[in-house]
Design a protein around this nucleic acid. Structure first.
Length: 399
RNA sequence: GGUGAGAUAGUCAAGUGGCCAACGACGGCGGACUGUAAAUCCGCUCCCUACGGGUUCAGAGGUUCGACUCCUCUUCUCACCA
């Protein structure tokens, strides 16, 4: 049982520092029913989460299953400083209203994965506001500039003469101080957070907390392309607020290799179940597409409902596997006889009449499922279903 | 501040007086194929009710029968020097 728990906790983790501590905590839970705390910090700078963020949440949920109590820390104070991680420029500061709004949307999204009864939402301004100048100085005296500059991001910026605000040095310190205040037993975060996570251990030691927190780092999830990290700016993400249809379709579009990665990091299936699926695909008893659909269903259902997920699957099959017509098609109206190319342009399924004529020539345009061959065709009064390629549809009513 | 190089379609990048609506690559779009929105192959890729017309190669002028290509100025970018 305890081994099973350890396996699930280790699952997908990039690195664990002080894994003996984790083992001890688990042992105490299984043998004496003692709980422990797992801290994870969230930066309320962007309103929407994508699947990359949920990797951490998923791991927290695993801990909750095995006696962990989650300290869901909102960086309400630190959001005003700007964490330099990953960005090589000083970040802009958010207004209070933005932060409050973001927090709200964060937590509703997070509780689709986390067990609310085993989660404490904490805001770090609660104790950081009171830290005061004296406390701040004391905190800062624990670290030297040389040690700060060890951080990869800082050293790069320093070397390339990109400005580093002194306040940015405070960020890792404050994040570390959060762990001191909360007396966290374990902290988890992405690999890009390593420096900050270790700071928690360092400061806990300085502030004479007997046991330093263990640190568990999760890898950064790849995006749909399977190469770059999942991020909004790269456009290769699956947002947790994506519509069921989008979500389902996006998961199905990933490569077979990436599918296993998603299984490992995002599925709630156990490692044994996943291993079984892998074997089944390899020996041909299961089709990889079926396995991928299972994954897509699971993920879609988590953020929507079971029913919406199944509908998304039906819709997907309709359009892609059987090349039928989707359910929702935008409708348009126009007067008199219309030239087909102009009609396609007006329905926003072609960018120009030139492009429309090209597509007609190549046999890519259909009216009511019939291929159009005449690029001079005039549409007379009636209703038409226009289609360009496999995916662009419009209904047009000619009066 | 000085000197030199450069600015070409969504992006990168050829083109040094007519053969240029402009090579090529990527992207995008169609088609075939596929379990897939992947991979692969084929075609298309400025606009216009079009075997023709219009507007493009940083901007403004000029030379020329004719300019993306030559000249002048302007704006911006980069490199080296100070």
């Amino acid at each position: 049982m305890i081994n099973e728990a350890l396996r699930e906790i280790n699952r997908g983790a990039a690195e664990i520092i002080d894994s003996e501590r984790v083992e001890k905590l688990l042992k105490a839970y299984f043998e004496e029913g003692k709980n422990y705390t797992v801290k994870a910090g969230f930066d309320p700078t962007a309103p929407d989460l994508h699947l990359g963020h949920t990797v951490l949440l998923q791991k927290l949920a695993t801990f909750q299953k095995y006696g962990g109590r989650v300290q869901f820390l909102i960086g309400s104070f630190t959001a005003m400083i700007g964490d330099p991680t990953g960005k090589s420029a000083t970040r802009k500061v958010l207004t209070k209203e933005d932060i409050v709004k973001n927090i709200k949307s964060y937590t509703t999204q997070a509780f689709k994965i986390l067990d609310a009864d085993k989660t404490d939402i904490v805001y770090n301004n609660e104790w950081l506001d009171d830290l005061g100048a004296a406390g701040m100085l004391q905190l800062a005296s624990n670290l030297t500039v040389a040690r700060m500059l060890e951080r990869d991001d800082f050293s790069k910026r320093y070397a390339s003469q990109t400005p580093i605000a002194v306040s940015e040095f405070m960020y890792p310190l404050l994040q570390g101080y959060d762990s001191v205040y909360l007396k966290s037993d374990i902290e988890i975060g992405g690999t890009d957070q390593k420096f900050n996570l270790l700071m928690g251990r360092q400061l806990q030691k300085s502030y004479e907390i007997k046991k330093q927190q263990a640190v568990l780092m999760m890898p950064i999830l790849e995006g749909l392309d399977g190469i770059q990290k999942m991020s909004k700016s790269l456009g290769n993400y699956i947002g947790v607020t994506d519509t069921p249809n989008d979500m389902f379709g996006k998961v199905l579009s990933i490569s077979d290799d990436l599918m296993w990665r998603f299984y490992e990091l995002l599925s709630t299936k156990t490692l044994d179940e996943i291993a079984a699926l892998k074997v089944a695909v390899e020996d041909g008893s299961k089709h990889p597409k079926v396995v991928k659909e299972e994954l897509a269903l699971e993920i879609t259902a988590r953020f929507h409902t079971q029913e919406e997920a199944s509908n998304a699957k039906i819709e997907f099959d309709k359009i892609h596997s059987k090349s039928q017509i989707p359910t929702d098609i935008p409708e348009f109206e126009c007067d008199g006889d219309v030239w087909i190319a102009k009609a396609l342009l007006d329905c926003n399924i072609e960018p120009s009449t030139s492009q429309a004529r090209r597509d007609i020539k190549q046999g890519g345009v259909k009216i009511d499922q019939e291929k159009v061959t005449d690029d001079k065709l005039q549409l007379t009064t009636g209703e038409y279903l226009l289609q360009v390629g496999k995916r662009k549809f419009a209904k047009l009513k000619v009066k």
